[in-house]
Every structure is written in structure tokens, then in C-alpha cells.
Design a protein around this nucleic acid. Structure first.
Lengths: 209, 209, 209, 209
DNA sequence: CATGAATGAGCTTTCATTCAT
DNA sequence: CATGAATGAAAGCTCATTCAT
């Protein structure tokens, strides 16, 4: 009984009223996470901010971790939505254009909710993720590896991880430093990615702004 | 009362016994942090592991945050030790060699205690850092900026931040994935850094293992 | 409001569907009680196991105690069914045979559902029993007292209580120790009862297995 | 860490102050148990009644069960104290006198704190007892078995259990019915025990009051 | 100075019960 | 009548922090 208590929600709400409650709780959790970090994410705070009672929260989430897990799951689904198309489309391009496209999508994604995103990444590490949540993440990974394989990049798994980390690290740092000019970030990051992939740099713009 | 509590240690102990206690507590804190994350870092646990009483802990650290802050301060000092010489020496080299040197030192540093390091970075964000701790960090930043300026890299502050984030992101991701071959990581990261700085890639090794 | 809440069911359902629901709930409650003790007996668990909604449960039982009370009432009724005839028939026998008969019936009863039975006894004590429930129990008591009076046993109320307790204690202990040979238990208990009543023991069996 | 959390106390208090606290908590727990049953035994109630804070309680008892376990342990130790000598002395008597002696001690013991005693017995069943607590109980059992063996009673383990249950059942029932004349209870119980053991009854008193 | 007993706010979670649909 | 979403008091337990010894 206790053993079976998984990371998945407790009830799938049928009525509209409860569906709204669940949504409210997840939104509240995201906001709290964004504002105060994991330390601030208490079940009481989530319930209060969502405007429901603590009892209601526990009708839908068997424990605190489940809320985080669901948030992570959605984040990964979002990631897939944001990246999937770009990665798929990139197969028909040259490596240079493919890299540009995917990089663009990636930056777009990371800029969506950078603080929440970072916070979820932190949480993800010490969270025993359920298989469904993992699945959501690995889809994008798989697509990236497929793309890199298609372009004959050596060690595609490693490269996927490297490029992903490279990109995430730089974008987050920039946004954390309140440097929010996405186009500029992309322009700075692109040559690094090209460098990693062994692609010749773009012809330098006559004026390096 | 709580408001006025500073982030710096309460007393700077001159006596050897006290100094040993403080050292023991900080070591204990680091170990706990490394083993169990911030969640496991309780004052009682630190005191117990350090072999001192909880009362003694509060004699030298006015609150929990202070312990973390001191750990961060030392981490930054370590960073300076690891990087300072490399950055200084790099002034006398060409850009390509300078980049290699600094990158090498950087990777060396990040590989020292990657788990603890990540944990401290996480903590750092939601920590109201005292001025002395900030100072420790900015020294290295300043040196990097100076170096980049010396090589006429445009926007040296931004570039310093970018390169630092790039490097940290990739190294941590690799180490987290249990990929611990530092030389290989360095070899993969170098072309990205070169790309970022607009340096032509190394002549490709005849065999790309 | 809470004070006024009685111990008797809220409605006596005439319709078949309702009756089935009530039956289902009581059965569910008994099963839960048997499997997990009083601690496991939650209203939600009862409703779920009975396949009805929690709202329906509260339509027929004003509160949790009422469910238990009804279970106790039925247990006592069962006791009367199991014992009544034996006690009545015993009037026409000699004391020795009467004791044998009643003891036999008693052990049969206690062996019916010993776990549930014990659990209900535990619950019974801290339960403010309604008068109807008490009535159910006292019928058998009265019959026993009548029987003992008929045989001129001194202090028949006390003797009824003593013999009942004696018997219950030993049977439960035996069953709890997984010693389920009813005939053997009866054979061991009989001389004790005879001893209590001052009846000479049976002629010893030539082989005392 | 959670796994290792046993049923044994957390700290063995060294200072007199804390020893008093522990004693106060156990006394409080016993009183609450006696007054309101297991349902009333909450950690908050225990702490409050003992005049300590809830934090103090958890310094010495890792969880609620531990308090109960300690109470059970003491009860068993008490049982051993009350019975041990009588059982030992009984070896040198005839069976009839031995039975009288042990029965007398047993009733004395059960009459000490009958309500608490019953409550602890109830609790004991659903409690995963630690080995030390079990040990405390089995000593008396072993002594009883030894005594019965000494008198060549067949199936001494079964007989020990039966007699113990018989006795406990009747004494508790009597005391619960507010019949507190221990001598009378003993006088009624004795012939039952004699009957069980196949001993001829005492010569009947000329007047059976 | 060192100790560790004591504190209590606050967290996670459960469950009896109500009430709009 | 049946449903099940919602409620919130209350339970078990943790941990940063204080203070008498």
C-alpha cells in the first residue's frame, strides 16, 4: 500500500471543477518554485496560493514529490513540443542550417521560463523519477541523437549531451545576469556550436555588434 | 534580531582548538552536502559529524546560512588558486595557447569536487551573499575580463561569463553522466571555445578517437 | 450537533438497493477490521471497499461509530443465535451435560470469526453503546444466568461472567497462537469449567493425548 | 537511515534533568492510555501532560510506537518481578500448593493496573516488538513452562498459555465489572485452575460465601 | 568556552464529515 | 437518493535555535 504509492497523481479528475483545482495547484506550485526555490515549495503554500484546502491537494497528489514530478513531466513535454518539429525538420537541411535551426529552437525553449526551468532541473536530480516522466525526456534526446547520427557526427550520444549542456549553461547564465537579448545570445552561442561540430564559422559580419 | 544576523562567522578563532573545531564543522558540512544535498545539511548533522556539540557550532556560526556562505567563500578562493596562475601566465601567450591554458585549468578546477561544487552553486543563488564572499568570486572574473581585454575580445565581460558558463555546463553534465575522462572532455570542449573566440580550429588529428 | 448524534443508523432502508448498500458497507467494514484492525477502519476505506460513494455511507450511518456499533449489535445477535438454543436445551439436562453442551456451543461461537470478534470486543469498550446494542447482549447473559440459577449455582451473575471470560480468554489465546483444533481446546477447557462449577471430572481417558 | 529506526529509545539520557523528562513522558503516556485508550495516545498529548515540549519527546523516542514499546517492556519486567519469585519458590512445593502460590501472584500482578495492562496487551498485538521487549516477556513464559514440566503436566507450553489466558481473562472481566475483591476472585478462579490441572478440589468450606 | 537538554514553529499527511451537483 | 469534490482540524515528526549548567 505504502509501497505502491508512486510518483503519479492519485486521481484523474473527471469533473470540470476538480480539473480546475488541479490546474490551479500546478500553477501555484510553479509560481512558488519560481519565486522562492524548492525550499519555499511547501504543500501548505501551494494549497493556499491555489485557493484550495490542503485536503484537496492531497486528493490529487499523494505527496509533495508528485507535484514536482508532474511539473517536470510537463516541462519535458513542453521541451518536446518546442524542439520536436525543429529537430525533425533539420534532417532535410545541411549540417550548418540544421545546427542553426535546432539552436534557435533550443534557445527559444530555454528562454520560456528560465528560472522555473532551472529550479525544476535542480529538483529533478534528487527526485526518483517515474518511468513516464523519464520517457517524456528521452524522446527529445533520442531525436537529437538520431539527427547527429544522420550527420555522421561521431559519438552522437555524447555530442547530444555536450551540446545540450553547453547551450543550457550559457543561456541560463545570460538570463540569470539579466541579459535577455535572445538574438544576441544566439549569435554568440552559434559559433561555439559550430566550433564543437567542426563547421567553418559564418562569414564574419562586417561590423561585429 | 533575526534581520541583523550577518553572513560572516561570529568569531575568528585564534586558538588552535577552536580553529580545529571550525575546520571540522566545515569539512563535515561539505561531506554532508556532497552526500545528501542541501536537504541533508542540518545543523545537528553537521555538529554530530564534526564531533562537536550543537552549542559549539552556534558559537562560531550564527546560523545555518553562515556555514554555507563560508563554504562558498572557500570554493571561490579555491577557484582563484586554481585559475589565477593560469590566467596570469596566459597574458604572455598567443590567444590560441592562452585559451588552451585557461581551459585546461578551468576543467581541472571543475573536476576537483564536482558534486559539492554543483551543490554550492545551487545554494549560492538563494543565499544573500555577504560582500566578502562576493569579493572572492569577482577576483577571478576580473582577471578573466582583463585577459580577454588584452586579446581584444569584444564585450569581455559578456564573453567571460559566456565561456565560464559554457565550460561549467558541459563539464558538469559530463561528470554527472559518469563520463570522467577529463582529457576527452577538454578535447571536445576546446573547439567550442575556439569557435566562440573565432579562433581557427586545430589541425584535425589524423585519427579522431 | 455532534453531541446529539445517536449511535443508531440514520434510516432503516426499505428498498432493496439501499439494503444491499448497507449490507455491502457492513461487510466491507468487517473485512477491513479483520484485516487491519481498528486503525485501518476509515470511512473512506469502507465506502470504497463496499463500492459506494462516501456520501452514500453517510446517508445510512451518521458517523463512523455507528458502523462499529451496528457490527457489534450483529455480533451479539449472532452470539444469541449460536448460544440460545444450547442454553435453552440445557435446562433439561443434568449440570454436567448442561455444562458440556453450553461449553461446546460457546467454543463453536468463538471460533467463528475470532479475529473480527476480538477486534469488536476491543472497540466495544471505548464505544458509547446505544441501548439497543446493549439489549442484544444482555439477552444471552440473562439466559445464562437463568440456567445457572436453575442449577442452583451460587452468585449466578458472577458465575456467568466468570465462565464467559474464562472461556473467551482461553479460546482466543489458543486461536491467536494458531492452535485451531477446536476439539482439543474444548477438551482442555472442560475440566476447568467443571472445576469452577464443582463438578467431578470426567473419568480420565485411558490415553491422555 | 529510516530502515535502522528501531523500536528502541533514541538517546539514553545522561543528565538527571533528562532522565526526569523521560520518566515524566512515560508516566504521562501510561495515564493517557489508561484514561482514553490507544486512540487518545497522541504524541502531543503525552508531551503536554508530561510538561515537556513535543521536541523533547522526539529527542528520546524516535516515534510514537517506541513509547508504547517501552511501556510494554516495563510491564513485562514488572510481570517478571511479580511472578518470578513465586514461580521459583513453587518448585519446592507440591502441585496443589504450587498452583495456589502462582495463582496468587498472578492475580496480584493483574490487579496492579488492570486497565493499563489490558490496553498494553491490545497494543502489543499490532506492534512489531523489538527483540529486547520479547525477551522480557519470554523469561516468565519459560519459567512457567519449566515449572509445569517439573510437575509432569502434559504439553507444558500449551498448559502455560491456557492457564495464563484463563486467569487473565477472568481477572480482567471481574475488575472491568468493578468487582475488585481480589480474594474472592482468587477463590473462584482456584477451582478452575485445579480442574484444568486435574487436582482434586479443596475440601468445600462448610459455608460457601 | 563547551555541552546537550529543551523549545516550538512549521512541515507533511490523514481522515471524518459536509454539501453542491 | 447517489456522487465525489472539498474541507480543515489534528496527527506525527523535524530542525534551527536558545540557554542553563
Amino acid at each position: 500500500m505504502t509501497q505502491a504509492a508512486a510518483l503519479s497523481p492519485r486521481k484523474t479528475p473527471r469533473q470540470t471543477r476538480s480539473r480546475a483545482s488541479v490546474e490551479a495547484m500546478l500553477t501555484a506550485a510553479a509560481q512558488i518554485l519560481e519565486a522562492g526555490g524548492i525550499a519555499a515549495l511547501t504543500t501548505n503554500a501551494v494549497a493556499e496560493r491555489a485557493g484550495v484546502s490542503i485536503g484537496t491537494l492531497y486528493q490529487y497528489f499523494p505527496n509533495k514529490e508528485t507535484i514536482l514530478a508532474e511539473l517536470v513531466r510537463r516541462q519535458k513535454a513542453q521541451f518536446f513540443e518546442d524542439m520536436g518539429q525543429a529537430v525533425a525538420a533539420a534532417h532535410d537541411l545541411g549540417l550548418r542550417e540544421a545546427a542553426r535551426t535546432v539552436l534557435h529552437a533550443s534557445i527559444r525553449h530555454h528562454a520560456r521560463a528560465p528560472v522555473l526551468s532551472r529550479e525544476l532541473e535542480k529538483a529533478e536530480m534528487q527526485l526518483p523519477l517515474g518511468p513516464d516522466v523519464c520517457a517524456a525526456g528521452s524522446e527529445v534526446d533520442a531525436a537529437m541523437v538520431a539527427l547527429l547520427t544522420h550527420f555522421a557526427v561521431p559519438q552522437p550520444e555524447v555530442a547530444a549531451r555536450d551540446l545540450s549542456a553547453l547551450c543550457r549553461g550559457m543561456v541560463h547564465a545570460a538570463l540569470f545576469a539579466e541579459d535577455c537579448d535572445l538574438a544576441a545570445i544566439e549569435a554568440r552561442l552559434r559559433p561555439a556550436v559550430f566550433g564543437y561540430l567542426g563547421i567553418a564559422p559564418d562569414a564574419p559580419a562586417p561590423d561585429g555588434a
